[in-house]
Design a binder for these strands. Structure first.
Lengths: 226, 226
DNA sequence: AAAAGAAACAATGTATACAGTATTATTAAG
DNA sequence: CTTAATAATACTGTATACATTGTTTCTTTT
């Protein structure tokens, strides 16, 4: 249902293994809610629907399990993982620590050109806010945090952080959708940039912590209102 | 070579898929150095050697890749991942943040019985130190940190932390092997327990940070001496 | 009619076969 | 003798077939 065909393989210049195509397709379906939590994912059925054999489907399911998007039970099969509120709180708790870490490292390591990029993204972000362009706001907010991560030159940190973000994807609009929260977010971003500019790692960690805490509030509120 | 057969499947009461058997076997071989960094892992060869087909071997390799123990290059194959010093520093940087987080949560959440367990483990640890029982010292040090993780009631944090630990497994003795470092470690452990007892989260985070920093020093030194 | 058991079915686990692509070895040209 | 082109080989990618297990349905017994 709504699951697209895999024609795009042909158009692509680069080679992409089928397992990655299936992975991307399923991941997208889960994150956009086309596949809902608890739904069983049967290999044969998916394979038929996607026009491939079970092999790449199996491998894709295992990749999804590694991202904590599906749950695999031996000899029972896979299902879209449902996150409890506790899971979300747990993820946010870890993300808080990692965001603080990243920001404090950025305060030490970030170079002038990178800071300039960050300022440009933030300017665009605030412009998008003026135009109430929600999709763009979300993208630029992500970009902002990605630039900070990049400046840490720590792939491991980046990888773990982005994995946590994927798991929270469903709630990515929770805080940005509420108009009243935007000014606070802008203030946080500016605070982070100021800390970076002043090479004040402690201040950076503190502001980042406040930022995530604020975000956490909104996510939890949006869960409760469902 | 030296790779054991898979007879033990039969003896086991619980069912273990072959992919998990292969995974455990390969993981063990990598962590104990029987498979060295850079070594190519060919599916056919491993399958023959382990007496299984390529299918479970493939799946096991992908699981290992997820733990960052092997590197998979599409259409090229798998090889045991070699970590650079930078990788190790990156991992330690993240672990530092997570250990501090875990300890500060423990200071808030840990219950009396759990603290008692922690004290017991520490007592055993110090006894093992007296007996210079290195294997046991390492195990009890792990147990100590596991108890702290458990008390956080944060599965996500636990999972990520333990994954980082696996990646550092090769260096797990670096600091415990040096006799002169043991008194400092004991002091750290006691400091952590005191912070937990006093419910002083800030103190806990600080001591944990110092502990990891100390550990980091030894790991880096042991790399340079190779 | 309810519960236990057996049989049919459907799903995952594993093995194998075939296809396509890197790599290596071999040959030809300069 | 070196380099480029080509053929042979060895590996991964994918599909499919078979084995095993879990589930459901239908029968049988109490």
């Amino acid at each position: 249902m709504g699951m697209e065909e895999t024609k795009f393989i042909i158009n692509s210049n680069e080679y992409l293994p089928l397992r990655d195509v299936v992975f991307n397709t399923l991941r997208d379906a889960i994150l956009t809610g086309k596949l809902v939590p608890g739904e069983r994912l049967m290999e044969n059925q998916l394979a038929d629907r996607l026009g491939v054999s079970r092999t790449p489907v199996r491998e894709a399911l295992r990749m999804l399990a590694l991202e904590n998007l599906v749950e695999l039970v031996p000899r029972k099969g896979a299902q879209v993982l449902d996150m409890s509120e506790k899971d979300i709180i747990n993820i946010l708790e870890v993300r808080d620590a990692l965001e603080s870490l990243a920001t404090s490292i950025a305060c030490v390591k970030m170079r002038k050109e990178e800071l300039q990029k960050l300022k440009n993204v933030e300017a665009e972000f605030e412009r998008a806010v003026g135009e109430s362009d929600l999709e763009r706001i979300i993208q630029l907010d992500e970009d902002f945090h990605d630039l900070i991560l990049e400046s840490t030159e720590n792939d491991k940190l980046t990888q773990i952080y982005q994995n946590l973000r994927v798991q929270l994807y469903r709630y990515r609009m929770a805080h940005l959708k509420v108009d009243s929260s935007i000014p606070a977010i802008i203030a946080h971003h500016r605070g982070i940039m100021r800390a970076i500019e002043n090479h004040d790692a402690e201040e950076g960690a503190t502001v980042a912590h406040g930022h995530i805490k604020y975000h956490t509030e909104f996510i939890l509120r949006s869960i409760h209102n469902k």
